[in-house]
Design a protein around this nucleic acid. Structure first.
Lengths: 111, 111
DNA sequence: TGTTAGTGTTTCGGAAATCGAAGCACAAGG
DNA sequence: CCTTGTGCTTCGATTTCCGAAACACTAACA
C-alpha cells in the first residue's frame, strides 16, 4: 500500500484531504508508537525495535520507509532514525493523548 | 483481540500504561476516523458506514463494540451511535491533528 | 588473517486482521 | 402482503502483520 499523503486519494477517502491522509497514516499499526518512541531520542533500528516491545522487524522497516516517505522521519549519518521538524510537530499534536489516556484510566476504574 | 484498556497488558506492551493502551486502540484501522465522524453528530450504523467511505460493515461493527467497551461510544435509544463524554474528550485530544495535517500538506508541496 | 559481535535490512511461510458482497431479522408505511 | 430501510451477521477472498532466520556489512580483537 502506498504511503498516505495529503493531496492524494487515500484508503478510506478519495478527496485527499490532509486530515484523512493523516488518519490513514497514523491508523497503521505501530505508527503512533514509533513517532512516540523516536521523540525521546534518536535510535538505531534494533534499539527502536526493542523500545517497541520487539515488534516485527519487517513491519518496522515498512513503517520507517513510510514515515520517511511522508517526511516525518529521516536517517542520520550514523543511520540512526530521527524525527524531522515535521515529525516533531506531529508528536506535539499527539501529546494531548497522554493526559487523555490518564483520564481514561481513571474513568474506567470507577466500574 | 481484546479491547485495549489502561491497566491491562496490551498488544505491544505488557505494562498496561494508559498511553500504550490508547496507542493500541487508536492504531486500529478506522478507529480514529470513527471517533472523528461521530463528533460531527450522532449517526446510525449505515449512515456512519457511508461517512467512512463505505468501510467494511463487519469491521465497523467490531470497532464500535471495542469503542463502546472502552467507554468512548454508546448507543442511544434510537440505536444511534454517539460519543460519550470520554469520547468527546478523546476527540478534543485529537483535534490538533487537523492543523498539523495542514502544515504537513504545505510542507510536502515544496518538493 | 580469522573470528566474534554488533549493526541495518531482507526473506518467507504462517497467523491474524480486514474486506465486501450477500443475506438475516426486524420495524414502519404503503 | 409487499416494499423499504434499518442494525447486524456470515463467510470466503485478500491484505496485513508476525517472527524467526538469514544476509551483508562494520568494528574490534586475537
Amino acid at each position: 500500500m502506498a504511503t498516505p499523503k495529503p493531496g492524494q486519494p487515500v484508503r478510506g477517502s478519495t478527496t485527499g484531504r490532509p486530515l484523512m491522509a493523516a488518519l490513514d497514516l497514523f491508523g497503521r499499526r505501530w505508527c503512533l508508537r514509533i513517532v512516540w518512541e523516536l521523540q525521546v531520542d534518536a535510535l538505531g533500528f534494533r534499539a527502536l525495535q526493542q523500545r517497541c516491545d520487539g515488534m516485527s522487524s519487517s513491519v518496522l522497516r515498512q513503517r520507517l520507509v513510510e514515515l520517511a516517505d511522508a517526511g516525518l522521519v529521516r536517517q542520520t549519518d550514523e543511520s540512526h532514525y530521527v524525527l524531522t521538524t515535521l515529525g516533531r510537530e506531529a508528536f506535539e499534536a499527539l501529546r494531548p493523548l497522554v493526559s487523555w489516556a490518564d483520564r481514561w484510566a481513571e474513568a474506567l476504574e470507577d466500574d
